[in-house]
Nucleic acid binder design. Structure first.
Length: 474
DNA sequence: ATGTTC
C-alpha cells in the first residue's frame, strides 16, 4: 500500500482521508521515529483503523508506533458509542490492561549502592516470572477470582496487599467499573487462577531505577520524586487470562461481523458495535481482565516492598499506576458536541491534563503522571499530561520495537547482552537467555527521542528521567 | 503479549 504522509509540523504527520477511510490518520512522530523497518505495516494499520464504523476525528499514532495485531501498537482510536461506534479487541491488545506502575523509594542511590546486590538477589528469588503458571497469590477458585476481577487493585488492598493510599494513585482508584466475570471463559479463568502476582515474559520487567534528571522541579516534587532517588518501575499485564479473553472475543466478533453488516480491510480488526450483545460482552470481560492486571501489579508491589524493607528498611510510595492497553468509555468534545466515546488506547498511555476531575486532589494542578518505560538498559521517563492534547488525552507508552523478536534472536546472544549490561553497572536477574536477547536495547527505538517527540507533539511534558540500576526480567 | 502454532 502506498501511503502519503503530509508533514504538518516536525512532530505531526497527516494521512489524508481517502475511501474507505472515514477519518484522516494523524501520526505524532519525528521523521526519524516513523516506522521504517522493512515489513513494518504500522502506517497501513493506521489507515485500516480509520475505516472503522463510528470512528471520530482521526486514527492516531503515538511516537513509539509499530506494527501490531490489527491495530498498530501506539495507536489511539475513539468511536462514538451512540452512533454505532465499534469496540475492537485488537484495539486494546492481547495483554489487556498491560501497564506501568512507578514507586518512589525512601532511599537514594548512594546509600543503596552497597546493598544493591542483595536487593537484586531477593527480588530475583521472590518475583515470579517467565511463561506459564506461578504467582504470589494462590486463589481458592472461580468465585474468589471473580471478586478480584470486579474490584482489581482495590480487592488486593482490601485483603492486606497494600495500603489505602496506593489506590489514590491508581487510575480509576484501581477498579475499572463494569467488569462482568461471567463473560470471562473457563479457559481464561483456569489460566488466571495460577498467575496472580507474576511478571510474565517478553518486555515485562521489574526495574530498580534512580532519578537521573529532573526537568520540572515543582511537578517532580508533587509526584514525590527528586534527583538521586531510587524508584521501582513495574511493567506487566493480565497474563494468560487477558490473552485468553482477547482470543475468545476476537473469535466471537469475527463470527458476528456479518450480522452487523461490518466490512473490514483486515480480519484482525474484528469488532462489534460497543452497544450490542457481543460489544458489551467484550467490554465486561475486558474490564474484568483489566482489574486482574491491576491486582497483579499491586501484588508485585508487595514483593518489592518486602525486599526494600529487608535490605534497606526503606518504604515504597506509589507515584502512579496506569494501563496502556485499554478501551475506556469517556466523554469528549467532538466538533463542539459532548459525545460518549469508546477510546481505544493500544500501547498508548492515558494522559489527563491539569484540572481534570478524575485526578487525585494532590495532582490536580500538575496533571497525570505519564509513565514511559524504556527498554532494558536504557532510560525511562516520567512525563505529565497537558492541556491541549490532541489525541483524546493520550501519549506514548514506551520505546517501541523496531526489530521483530525473530530478528533480535538472530542478532543478539542473551549471555553476551547480560555481560554487557552488568559491565555498565546494571544488575540483571533474567529468567531465560532467549527472552533477554529478544529484549535487546537495539531492538527498540530510542526512548529519549520518543520522549522528546511526545513533548514536541504536545501530548505530554517532561518531568523526570530515570536510569536503570537493576532489572528483573521474565 | 502468550501453557512462544487450534
Amino acid at each position: 500500500m502506498d501511503i502519503t504522509l503530509v508533514e504538518e509540523t516536525p512532530f505531526r504527520f497527516r494521512i489524508e482521508r481517502q475511501v474507505p477511510m472515514r477519518v484522516p490518520g494523524v501520526v505524532f512522530a519525528t521523521r526519524e521515529l516513523l516506522p521504517q523497518a522493512a515489513g513494518d505495516k504500522a502506517l497501513e494499520q493506521v489507515v485500516n483503523v480509520a475505516t472503522l464504523p463510528g470512528i471520530v476525528r482521526a486514527s492516531y499514532a503515538m511516537p513509539d508506533v509499530h506494527w501490531g495485531y490489527g491495530f498498530p501498537i501506539g495507536g489511539v482510536a475513539a468511536t462514538d458509542m451512540d452512533a454505532g461506534g465499534v469496540i475492537s479487541p485488537g484495539g486494546v491488545g492481547f495483554d489487556i490492561s498491560c501497564g506501568v506502575r512507578l514507586l518512589a523509594a525512601g532511599i537514594d542511590r548512594g546509600p543503596l549502592a552497597p546493598r544493591m546486590r542483595r536487593l537484586m538477589d531477593i527480588l530475583g528469588d521472590t518475583v515470579p516470572r517467565g511463561l506459564g503458571p506461578g504467582g504470589l497469590w494462590k486463589l481458592s477458585g472461580r468465585s474468589q477470582l471473580g471478586e478480584l476481577m470486579v474490584s482489581g487493585a482495590a480487592y488486593a488492598v482490601e485483603h492486606g496487599r497494600g495500603v489505602p493510599r496506593d489506590l489514590e494513585r491508581c487510575e480509576d482508584r484501581g477498579t475499572l467499573p463494569g467488569a462482568d466475570p461471567s463473560q470471562v471463559g473457563q479457559r481464561a479463568v483456569d489460566r488466571g487462577l495460577r498467575q496472580v502476582g507474576s511478571l510474565g515474559s517478553a518486555n515485562h520487567f521489574l526495574e530498580v531505577q534512580a532519578v537521573d534528571r529532573v526537568y520540572d522541579e515543582p511537578t517532580a516534587t508533587a509526584f514525590g520524586l527528586h534527583t538521586g532517588q531510587v524508584c521501582v518501575m513495574i511493567h506487566c499485564g493480565s497474563r494468560g487470562l487477558g490473552h485468553q479473553v482477547c482470543s475468545d472475543h476476537v473469535h466471537a466478533m469475527d463470527q458476528s461481523l456479518r450480522s452487523f453488516g461490518i466490512e473490514l480491510p483486515d480480519r484482525q480488526l474484528a469488532c462489534a458495535p460497543a452497544v450490542s450483545t457481543p460489544g458489551s460482552a467484550y467490554l465486561g470481560a475486558m474490564a474484568a481482565a483489566a482489574n486482574y492486571g491491576r491486582a497483579n501489579r499491586q501484588l508485585l508491589t508487595e514483593a518489592a516492598r518486602h525486599a526494600f524493607t529487608v535490605v534497606a528498611g526503606a518504604g515504597l510510595d506509589l507515584v502512579y499506576d496506569v494501563s496502556h492497553n485499554m478501551a475506556k468509555i469517556e466523554t469528549h468534545d467532538v466538533d463542539g458536541v459532548r459525545r460518549r466515546l469508546c477510546v481505544h488506547r493500544k500501547g498508548a498511555t492515558r494522559a489527563l491534563p491539569p484540572g481534570h476531575p478524575d485526578l487525585p486532589d494532590d495532582l490536580a494542578e500538575v496533571g497525570q503522571p505519564v509513565l514511559v518505560p524504556g527498554t532494558m538498559g536504557t532510560a525511562s521517563y516520567v512525563m505529565a499530561g497537558v492541556v491541549g492534547n490532541a489525541a483524546f488525552w493520550s501519549a506514548a507508552h514506551g520505546a517501541g520495537r523496531v526489530w521483530s523478536r525473530h530478528q533480535a534472536l538472530r542478532r543478539v546472544r542473551g549471555e553476551q547482552l547480560h555481560e554487557e549490561l552488568e559491565s555498565h553497572g546494571i544488575a540483571v536477574r533474567p529468567k531465560s537467555w532467549r527472552a533477554l536477547a529478544e529484549e535487546a536495547p537495539d531492538a527498540y527505538k530510542d526512548v529519549d527521542a520518543v520522549a522528546v517527540a511526545t513533548e514536541g507533539a504536545g501530548l505530554a511534558r517532561l518531568v523526570a528521567r530515570l536510569v536503570p540500576l537493576g532489572v528483573v526480567k521474565g
